[in-house]
Simulated scan of single mutants.
Amino acid sequence: MPDLSAFPITKRWPATHPDRLQLYSLPTPNGVKVSIMLEETGLPYEPHTIDIGASETWTPEFLSLNPNGKIPAIIDPDGPGGQPLVLFESGAILLYLAEKTGKLLPTDPARRYETIQWVFFQMAAVGPMFGQLGYFHKFAGREIEDKRPQERYRAESQRLLGVLEGRLAGRTWIMGDDYTIADIALLGWVRNLIGFYGAGDLVAYSELTHVPAWLERGLARPAVQRGLTIPARP
């Protein structure tokens, strides 16, 4: 049985099953990428709820795992060479789990890098822009008199949806017939933009055809449905 006692985070969030991958997360657009991936691959794991509303990511225990203080993060007791591996950043975790399991990432080198570029597209553009629009539209940003920041993020989010709309024309998934980590990376963010953030009208979501159909297909997957609720919210 692996011994995870050397990791301070396990003092605050003890591992009941230390032989399983430990997931420290919350069902946010970034957090669900990893829970969906784990559900899709069937890799045994143990989820731990990190209450970001209670600033638990800024505790010494969590910061020992991710000094950037963000979810998700993992400990894989069976990492490379059989040694425990700590990893944060959802995109990096997706790539790691895909390579570890041999699933949801093409083996052909050209298609592999094409998939990775769409994961990076989400990390570099979709996540930051959608998140900022959500802040200005739903949260404290609405109190800011100057509306230029919100308009900037609205326009850019709408443009990014247009990029996705063009990519999905004639394709079932981002990579065509193959459902991959690119889809997993993007599904939660598009869902959040029109759902939790309530910004569908702002970005003219109803005028799109391919993105809504893709989102519906993705949300119909049983592993996605399960992953969207893991870990349980506090």
Rank of each mutant, 00 (worst) to 15 (best):
P2T: 06
A6M: 14
A6V: 14
P8Y: 03
I9G: 00
T10Q: 04
T10I: 02
P14V: 12
P14E: 05
H17Q: 09
P18K: 02
R20A: 00
L23Q: 00
Y24C: 14
S25T: 06
S25Y: 01
N30R: 11
V32P: 05
K33Q: 01
M37R: 12
T41C: 12
T41W: 02
G42E: 13
L43V: 10
Y45M: 01
E46Y: 09
H48L: 07
D51M: 08
D51L: 11
G53P: 05
G53C: 08
S55R: 12
W58Q: 15
W58N: 14
T59E: 13
T59D: 12
P60H: 02
E61M: 04
F62S: 14
F62G: 15
L63S: 11
S64P: 10
N66R: 11
P67V: 07
P67A: 13
N68F: 02
P72N: 06
P72Q: 04
A73Y: 07
I75K: 11
D76S: 15
P77K: 10
D78C: 08
P80K: 15
G81D: 13
G82R: 12
V86G: 10
S90V: 01
S90T: 07
I93K: 04
L94Q: 04
Y96G: 08
L97C: 09
E99G: 06
T101E: 14
K103Y: 00
L104R: 02
L105V: 11
M123I: 15
A124S: 15
A125T: 10
Y135E: 08
Y135I: 13
I144C: 04
E145W: 05
R148D: 11
P149C: 12
Q150W: 06
Q150T: 05
R152L: 11
R154F: 06
R159K: 15
L161F: 01
G162C: 11
V163L: 01
L164V: 01
E165M: 07
G166D: 12
L168R: 00
R171E: 03
R171S: 07
M175C: 04
D177Q: 13
Y179S: 02
T180C: 03
D183T: 02
L187I: 14
V190R: 07
N192P: 06
L193W: 07
I194R: 00
G195V: 15
F196W: 09
F196G: 00
F196S: 00
L208G: 07
H210S: 14
H210A: 15
V211I: 01
L215M: 08
E216N: 04
G218L: 05
A220S: 07
Q225C: 12
L228V: 10
I230W: 09
P231T: 08
